[in-house]
């Protein structure tokens, strides 16, 4: 169990690091990515951020699951984000909305 687990930790660690390093390593060796690839990569932030955010509010997992308090707090935070484009204001408004819904109402 001990050697097995240590082996697992090391292999998982090396592979995870390889994933992280992959393109950061390659691009410095090969020079810039082709223009078409760069064009697609420019949309990674909106695509990834949305994929990280939306399932926190609405998710389908053998039935539709909606987290009403998180969804409402998320809408409040989205409005603040749109109006202010300020990270702190967005987080603060979202957390305050969540706590208000959970503990005060």
């Amino acid at each position: 169990m001990n050697t097995w687990l240590w082996g697992l930790i090391l292999v998982a660690g090396v592979l995870t690091f390889s994933i992280r390093y992959s393109f950061i390593y390659l691009v410095a060796k090969t020079g810039d990515l082709p223009p078409r690839a760069k064009r697609v990569l420019a949309y990674v932030p909106p695509a990834v951020f949305a994929a990280l955010v939306i399932p926190e509010f609405v998710a389908y997992d053998a039935g539709l699951h909606v987290a009403p308090d998180q969804l409402t707090a998320g809408v409040v935070a989205a409005v603040v984000a749109y109006r202010t484009e300020n990270l702190f204001a967005t987080i603060l408004s979202g957390m305050l909305a969540l706590w208000t819904l959970r503990f005060l109402l």
Partner: peptide
């Protein structure tokens, strides 16, 4: 998720990035 949301809003700055976010969020959900 609030941090990602705060970063998502300004990242949706044109048609293409808005399409990326809308489709990605829907499929992920």
């Amino acid at each position: 998720p609030l941090v990602f949301l705060a970063l998502l809003v300004p990242a949706m700055k044109d048609r293409e990035s808005t399409a990326a976010a809308a489709v990605s969020g829907t499929v992920a959900a």
